[in-house]
Amino acid sequence: MTQLFLEQALNGLQFGLMLFLLAAGLTLVFGIMDCINLAHGSLYMVGAYFVAAAAQAADSFWLGLGAGVAGTALLGLLLELSLFRQLYRRDHLAQVLATFALILIANESVRLIWGPAPLLLNPPESLAGPVEIAGFFYPAYRLVIIACGLVVAGLLYLLVAKSRIGMWVRAGAANREMTEALGINVRALFTAVFVFGAGLCALAGGLLGPLLAVQVGMGESVLILAFVVIIIGGIGSIRGALVGALIVGTVDTLGRALLPTLLRATLPADAAATLGPALASILIYLLMAGILFFKPQGLFPARA
């Protein structure tokens, strides 16, 4: 039982950390620039495709990951300069429409370039098998993902909480006009944050690629989850994104693992079999609605 719990906790942690990579960029773009970016999930998808294509070309996963992240960051730069700059000043509706349009364009372009079938991306040979920890086997590659996630989360924390740039970013999230008035080049800051967010997307897409599947539409389901995370955490707060991501990752994993068993113990088998997966899949949305009901600004509101 403790083994099962430990394994599920690791699974939750792994899922949560990847959600954090996605949510970090989204919450900053959202918080500082007040811009809804529905196409954030498309950057994750395009990132995964870039990584997969580069890994195939270079015949090395790690080289592919580096190239894919760089390529996606570059794409993010182009997007920011050409489109998003004009969107910051517009209302949420225009942002929703424009970024919805980007989703359509991204999905179809990927289908046009790489075809409708999912792309294959394999983990490095040495990490394909399981390793033994605390008496049970756990996939080595998932441990690597956890490690990567922890390192990036740590670096991000240092960057945002301790560095000068991070201070500007936090200031921008809390009060944009004031930050501008203090003479900080907010425009360049916006660009940098957007590009950074795009890179994190590609990192998550590339790391998850071998585990899941690199396919058209992979961005949409994850986008919704990332939004749930930043709403729970509070828009614009990196700390909120981390806490929110870990909560969502853990609740989703544990819900899927424990709910069916719990229900089976209390309900007739038939009802439990139907209700279990249904409840498990709406658990995080219930959680979000509940949190918003009591704390309409999320757990860690960036604007006091």
């Binding site: 959202f30 809804i36 949420h92 929703v96 919704i224 939004f227 749930v228 709403i231 828009i235 139907t274 209700l275 997966p277 249904a278 899949s281 709406i282 949305y285 219930l286 979000m288 609605a289 918003l292 009901f293 309409p296 600004q297």
Partner: peptide
Amino acid sequence: RTRGVYFIMITLAFAQMTYYLFVSAS
């Protein structure tokens, strides 16, 4: 009860819940 972007997201969340409910309702 919520405003702006939070309203967008909470309506989305309710729609997702409804979606999953119907997907699971055998």
